[in-house]
């Protein structure tokens, strides 16, 4: 019987990484930052920059960050939503840069929702 060698494992790793990088946005974890006037005035740009900083520092290749407009929940801004592949869409409220970093570490990287900051889940 043929044994799995170290070389085989390396090939699998390379193949998986290549596949991960070739994935369409639909196959990636999604973060949406709401950037309407209300969001921007409440600090959404700083929240977005903290998220990009974490993605850069952690080398998160399987995460896509996009932006959206106002959804009429101005009093809870800055708002972000996080949807991991196959998971629910979680809307977070009052997301300061510090909270954004925590959400990346806890939810995006480790899959645990930061329940105290959740506004709604779809």
């Amino acid at each position: 019987m043929k044994k799995l060698t170290l070389e085989d494992l390396k090939k699998i790793k390379e193949k998986t990484q290549a596949e991960l990088e070739m994935r369409s946005p639909e196959g990636k974890d999604k973060i949406v930052v709401h950037m309407g006037t209300c969001g921007i005035a409440a600090g959404a740009r700083e929240t977005l920059l903290a998220i990009l900083d974490e993605i850069e520092k952690r080398g998160l290749k399987n995460v896509v960050v996009t932006q959206a407009g106002c959804i009429g929940l101005c009093e809870y801004e800055p708002l972000i939503s996080v949807q991991k592949v196959g998971g629910p869409k979680v809307l977070y409220k009052y997301v300061t840069p510090e909270k954004a970093r925590k959400i990346i570490a806890q939810h995006v990287v480790n899959g645990q929702v930061v329940s105290e900051d959740v506004l709604s889940t779809e």
């Binding site: 740009r45 700083e46 977005l48 920059l49 960050v65 996009t66 932006q67």
Partner: peptide, 14 residues
């Protein structure tokens, strides 16, 4: 203010 951050955010999220 933070023009570089503004432009970075626009480019990367779109």
């Amino acid at each position: 203010g933070n023009l570089s951050g503004t432009i970075l955010g626009l480019i990367v999220t779109n």
